[in-house]
């Protein structure tokens, strides 16, 4: 069973945050087919949010074929989003941890790390797209 967390400062709508968290759990294998999602009432009460918001998130996940509601029982995972790449996550994570050790040793703080990762990601993605664009023309 997963537990939802809300970011009160996020501009993202509450139901989108719930959807994103379920998908993330599906991607990393924390949720697998057959697993049950927290009950609507429990989510509404623990997060102090409108039960309709939870229903809306679950309905959207159902439309996408990821979960199914069983009347009177609950909502269950139908399909995983984890890909074969999941097996490499462990090794990549160890690399990342080693890299983070170096980063912190160099004196960067958490915000600077996040900024560095985000700007690098953006730059790499843009280069990729640029290259693909040129190859498309050539």
């Amino acid at each position: 069973m997963i537990e939802f967390l809300l970011d009160g400062h996020s501009r993202e709508a509450t139901y989108m945050q719930l959807i994103r968290q379920v998908k993330q759990a599906l991607r990393v294998g924390m949720l697998e087919p057959g697993d049950q999602l927290p009950k609507v009432r429990e989510v509404a009460e623990s997060l102090a949010i409108n039960p309709n918001t939870v229903l809306k998130a679950y309905r959207q996940l159902e439309i996408e074929g990821l979960v199914e509601g069983r009347v009177g029982v609950g909502t269950f995972v139908r399909r995983s989003l984890s890909r074969p790449t999941l097996v490499t996550h462990g090794a990549l994570r160890r690399d990342l941890e080693a890299w983070l050790d170096r980063v912190f040793a160099a004196g960067l703080d958490e915000e600077e790390v996040v900024a560095l990762v985000e700007t690098t990601l953006r730059a790499v993605f843009q280069e990729d797209r640029f290259r693909q664009g040129r190859e498309g023309i050539a």
Binding site: V40, R41, A44, E45, S46, A48, I49, N50, P51
Partner: peptide, 13 residues
């Protein structure tokens, strides 16, 4: 927060 939690529980029930 506890009050809003109780209220949302009631709405769900």
């Amino acid at each position: 927060r506890e009050f809003m939690q109780a209220l949302m529980g009631i709405v769900a029930d």
